[in-house]
Design a protein around this nucleic acid. Structure first.
Length: 413
RNA sequence: GGCCCCGUCGUCUAGUGGUCCAGGACAUCUGGUUCUCAUCCAGAAAAUCGAGGGUUCAAAUCCCUCCGGGGUCACCA
């Protein structure tokens, strides 16, 4: 029998980075063995539902190539099914009406346990510790505790992957599966991502939405690679994974049981790495939505090779190329030699043709010193891409203007 | 507080009784390449394996207690 997993988000806003990770795990578990990865929209709380959120879920999954099989199941379209299930539970004596809602009846003095395939051991509870959870709300909508067993059964889910915060309510679900005469699927609880400040990573504490990371210039492949390694690792210490590679090496034995802290330093490294993997053409295309300064399309194309090794996020583009659009101010106390600049003006063609080094040396100057003078005069910064190449992109005319302007300013000072 | 989960370098982790005085990656530091920065390459520092007891010839690996972290106790998921 093939493995069937599902990703079951609630459409309550933009997708959480942790949800992306859970989706990737569920996807990999299914696809590793050629199974199916299904999608379910858990929209049973009318108050929390956000319009457009469902579409966002589809968009994000597609952006990360986490394609799902079959038609997504939408819980709000299955109300009758849940209501019938609740009635059956009442009839079999396992649920009771309570002020318009229907609650699960908890059997006394029983031990409820299951084998968690992520934790890799049994977890058990005394039934007396379990609360009589509401299964069907008075508005006729099911709670998660009813909808999850019913849907996972109907969808033929074989393996449920959800983060540890669900572990405490698992005995409720086990009971519902049992009383509905449904076979219990395999259930596994990967760790929950923790906030660096403590507690679980939440929207209130910072940037946790996938959209925001994308908007800040992180590549999907970098985000995915980063996130799958928060709580999962292969036995051979590999770090770089495409989705396909992740799927093929995925193994439930790779789950780490402790909760990882969401430290994004490594994400930056992944992002820089994947940016450098791109061709100049691809990168030019990718960076365009982030270009807010006034560089023309041609200029962007010319500049990309110069800044490729310096980009950490796509959104760094403007900052790294600022001196292309605005004439820089010469920083005070900058060590710029007017003699260097005059020499550069006279020899501008040699500079642009990359034939200047010997001439610098024959002047008895250090090559580095000379270029630093140019760098500061032309870009107003001590840190830039190679200055000759930068001037080439700037053009002869603009380069001369800046050199002359710098000389003028230096004289005034 | 009750119940439940977890505890290896700052961070993500490898490790399932001996080959571990614990390996990799990020971050950090140093050196090399380079016209600066960055990239790239090389190297260093960094974990008494949460603590204390056991079991064993032998424990990061098994057991117990404690401590610490996290989750959950909604007609939210």
């Amino acid at each position: 029998m093939s493995i069937r997993t599902r990703f079951a988000p609630s459409p309550t806003g933009s997708m959480h980075i942790g949800s992306l990770r859970t989706a990737a795990y569920a996807y990999a578990l299914a696809k590793h063995s050629g199974g199916q990865f299904l999608l379910r929209i858990e929209d049973t709380d009318q108050k929390r539902e956000v319009k457009g959120a469902t579409q966002k879920i589809y968009d994000v999954l597609q952006k990360f190539d986490l394609g799902w099989d079959e038609k997504p199941v939408v819980q709000s379209q299955r109300l009758k099914i849940y209501q019938d299930a609740a009635q059956r539970l009442i009839q079999s004596g396992h649920a009771v009406s309570d002020q318009g809602a229907i609650r699960l009846k908890i059997p006394p003095r029983e031990t409820i346990s299951f084998h968690d395939f992520v934790l890799d051991h049994d977890v058990s509870w005394k039934s007396d510790d379990i609360p009589p959870a509401v299964l069907l709300k008075s508005d006729g909508f099911p709670t998660y505790h009813l909808a999850m067993p019913v849907d996972d059964h109907d969808m033929g889910i074989t393996h449920v992957i959800r983060t540890v915060e669900w572990l405490p309510s698992t005995p409720i679900h086990i009971l519902v599966f049992k009383y509905l005469n449904y076979e219990l699927p395999q259930i596994g609880h990967p760790s929950a991502i923790l906030d660096p400040a403590g507690g679980k990573l939440s929207k209130r504490k910072g940037n946790v939405s996938v959209e925001q990371f994308l908007a800040r210039g992180y590549l999907p492949e970098a985000l995915l690679n980063f996130v799958i390694l928060l709580g999962w690792a292969p036995k051979d210490n590999r770090e770089l994974f495409t989705l396909e590679q992740f799927v093929s090496t995925f193994d439930i034995k790779g789950f780490q049981k402790s909760n990882p802290i969401f430290n994004t330093q490594k994400l930056d490294w992944f992002n820089g790495h994947y940016i450098r993997q791109k061709s100049d053409t691809e990168l030019t295309h990718l960076v365009k939505p982030y270009v807010k300064n006034k560089l023309s399309s041609t200029q962007i194309t010319q500049v990309i090779p110069l800044i490729k090794d310096r980009l950490i996020k796509l959104s760094d583009f403007d900052q790294l190329t600022q001196f292309f659009v605005s004439r820089p101010a010469i920083p005070p106390n900058a060590s710029v030699s007017p003699t260097h600049l005059k020499f550069a003006i006279v020899n501008i063609d040699a500079i642009l043709n990359n034939e200047i080094v010997d001439k610098i040396k024959s002047q008895g100057w250090k090559v580095g010193d000379f270029f630093m003078s140019l760098r500061i005069a032309v870009c107003g910064s001590k840190f830039t891409p190679p200055i000759t190449e930068t001037m080439l992109v700037l053009g002869k005319e603009e380069s001369l203007k800046r050199l002359n302007s710098a000389i003028g300013k230096l004289k005034i000072d």
